[in-house]
């Protein structure tokens, strides 16, 4: 999928993560993460974001993520939602892509 627009999913509530996606200027996946659990889970959060984008076959995107202790399942769901929005897909979602 190709990111064509800026999109947002998620909130700044605790246990949630806010994901903003936008077309990347330089190509590749660039993640800018702010997290209340950066020291303990920063690595894991980046990994989940990258993995989820990979499964959706998004290769060029800038990600701004503000995390307040979201679990992995929440991170996946927010990234997926933001991705479909950023790619302008509004129906026929591929629910199988993330297991």
């Amino acid at each position: 999928m190709k990111v064509i627009d800026k999109s947002l999913a998620g909130t700044l509530e605790s246990s949630d993560i806010q994901i903003i996606l936008m077309p990347a200027e330089n190509g590749g996946i660039e993640i800018e993460l702010k997290s209340s659990v950066e020291k303990q889970f920063g690595r894991q959060i980046r990994k989940i974001i990258t993995e989820t984008l990979g499964k959706l076959q998004i290769e060029n995107v800038k990600v701004i993520a503000v995390d307040n202790g979201a679990l992995d399942c929440t991170i996946r769901a927010r990234v997926e939602c933001a991705a479909y929005r950023a790619c302008g897909i509004k129906e026929k979602y591929d629910w199988e892509v993330i297991d």
């Binding site: 659990v37 020291k39 303990q40 889970f41 992995d72």
Partner: peptide
């Protein structure tokens, strides 16, 4: 099993 394994604090 809920939160995963946190990295050790340095």
């Amino acid at each position: 099993s809920i939160v995963g394994i946190p990295d050790k604090i340095e």
